[in-house]
Design a protein around this nucleic acid. Structure first.
Length: 512
RNA sequence: GGCUCCGUAGCUCAAUGGCAGAGCAGUUGCCUUUUAAGCAAACGGUUGUAGGUUCGAGUCCUACCGGAGUCACCA
């Protein structure tokens, strides 16, 4: 350490630990050594003992991990060390490790939260726990700040009971490392998150033969969704840039280029409010498949979610927020118009303009509509107030009004609706998809419609993406597109009811 | 951004407007098969921040900081 440290111990525990670190250094013990010689994970060590059998020659292992429990008796000590695979008990006797080493343990110079490496043979203690009879123990990393103390007891049936908690939500999010280190189950949520993304990729690559691509996150023109963007700036080019709000327009250009089916898994950024299901940056999967329509996309979507659930949880059933949900296809498909009519009694086709529809809504809902609500927006309000909360089992709502769907192709039965669906599970919107518009002239007029809508609105115009139209004029194959919020799928598969609990680092306000 | 609730020891929580407490962790002892180990003792606080009311504020009031919930925004 060449620079003096500004860090000062903030508690009696930290003061003690700093003193212990100095004592160790005085005894010539390296606090943060370079080399480690692990031969077994804790799980492998136990498995090796079980495989060898009780009467076999001793299995010698070197295991590493963080000390999570200590019980020092006069001349013998027990501790549990934890690594990514689990825990194993160390059995340490002064006779085996020698006076000098035992002193270090007895004085707790090596203590809770430190990382250690232990070498010894596997054995079973009197009370039956498979343990490492330690011959040598080496400090791997000295912990200077105490983690929250959580003790656990494993019952006979294998369930783990915890005593002591680390529940301060703010601290858990701001210091996710501490949350992961001590809270049983949090690491499993994020393992499942990883498996979810792997499974999506496997499904689209192997089952659907799609090509994974990467498109720009920094975009000169944003689009593909209605959301406020984050802005940034390239210094040398003196160029205003937006963080993407969707991948849509860049992916569809690739179908013009000749790929049959492309997908991207990545981060979107939306400069909007945060909630239990909204984070400013979130992970999205979008795919676009040539020669497919929204019916084909529905087939793919329901198979994909079931496939992922099977891979992640080993079942297509999930228990979420008090509901038992079956994800196996086929899912219910209902026209949006019918769903709204059933739930609210309002047939929006009977109220074809904003004032008429507003009157109908105000007649049945106490909540006032925001001023200047457009007709399309009212449809959305009807959907979110009356329909969405009740869509517990997987459901596709299909055929949306054209006004609120600028990238979807018209249905064949009227001029009002487009071939679009949204999918809902557990009262949450998970995905959004269309039979994609591929008529460049129709697309241009939709852009103009949107620009007018936004201009009437407020601060920003919906950007007209001229290059996207140019691409489309070369000819874009008919195609079906799909987008899904991966975080929300992970919530569903892990039983978490807040998006923050499936994001390792959810967005937080600056700490002053 | 509006409204409601919350912020006390490292962690989890108590405390009618009247001496700021407990358990765990840490410290000091005892203990060679414990496992939420145990027993004994001592220690641990600018009650989120800044003001105010009051003889007296963790508690009541105002503002601010942070968090949660909810509404709005999110086609």
């Amino acid at each position: 350490m060449s620079q003096p440290n500004s860090w000062q111990p903030g508690s009696n525990v930290e003061k003690d630990r700093l003193e212990k670190a100095e004592k160790l250094a005085e005894r010539g013990i390296e606090l943060y050594p370079r080399r480690v010689q692990r031969t077994h994970t804790t799980a492998q060590a136990i498995a090796a003992f079980d495989a060898a059998g009780e009467d076999a020659a001793p299995v010698t292992v070197t295991v590493c991990g963080r000390i999570r429990r200590m019980n020092i008796r006069g001349r013998v000590a027990f501790m549990h060390i934890e690594d990514d695979s689990g825990r194993v008990q160390l059995f340490i006797r002064v006779n085996d490790v020698g006076e000098a080493t035992y002193e270090i343990i007895k004085e707790k110079l090596i203590e809770l939260d430190d990382f250690v490496q232990a070498t010894g043979h596997m054995m079973r203690t009197k009370t039956g726990e498979v343990s490492v009879a330690v011959q040598e123990i080496v400090l791997l990393s000295k912990s200077l700040s105490p983690l929250p103390v959580i003790k656990q007891k494993t019952l006979d049936d294998g369930t783990v009971v915890e005593y002591g908690e680390f529940t301060d939500i703010e601290a858990r999010y701001r210091q996710r490392y501490a949350d992961l280190a001590v809270n049983h189950g949090v690491r499993e949520v994020f393992r499942k998150r990883s498996r979810t993304i792997n499974a999506i990729r496997a499904f689209l690559d192997d089952e659907e033969d799609m090509l994974e691509v990467e498109t720009p996150i920094l975009q000169p023109i944003y689009g593909g969704a209605a959301a406020r963007p984050f802005t940034t700036h390239h210094n040398q080019l003196d160029q205003m840039l937006y963080l993407r709000i969707s991948f849509e327009l860049y992916l569809k250009r690739l179908l013009v280029g000749g790929y049959d089916a492309v997908y991207e898994i990545g981060r979107d950024f939306r400069n909007e409010g945060v909630s239990y299901k909204h984070n400013p940056e979130f992970t999205q999967i979008e795919f676009y498949k040539a020669y497919a329509d929204y019916n084909d996309v529905m087939d793919i979507a329901e198979r994909m979610v079931a496939y992922v659930a099977q891979k992640v949880n080993g079942t297509t059933r999930v228990h979420y927020d008090g509901h038992d949900i079956e994800l196996a296809p086929p899912w219910r498909r209902v026209r949006l118009r019918d769903a709204i009519r059933e739930a609210s009694g309002i047939d929006y086709m009977a109220h074809p303009d904003a004032p008429a529809l507003a009157e109908a809504i105000n007649a049945i809902s106490e909540k006032p509509l925001p001023p200047d609500t457009t007709w399309g927006r009212m449809i959305d309000i009807l959907l979110s107030r009356f329909v969405e909360p009740n869509l517990i089992q997987p459901t596709f709502l299909i055929d949306y009004p054209r006004d609120i769907s600028p990238f979807a192709k018209r249905v064949d039965y009227d001029d009002f609706h487009v071939e679009r669906f949204e999918m809902f599970i557990a009262g949450m919107e998970l995905g959004n998809a269309f039979t994609e518009l591929n008529d460049p002239r129709d697309q241009e007029s939709r852009f103009i419609d949107m620009a007018q809508l936004y201009a009437a609105d407020d601060d920003e115009a919906a950007p007209m993406d001229e290059d996207y139209l140019r691409a489309m004029r070369y000819g874009m194959p008919p195609n079906g597109g799909f987008g899904m919020g991966v975080d929300r799928l992970v919530m569903l598969l892990t039983g978490q009811t807040s998006i923050r609990d499936v994001l390792l680092y959810p967005h937080m306000r600056d700490q002053k």
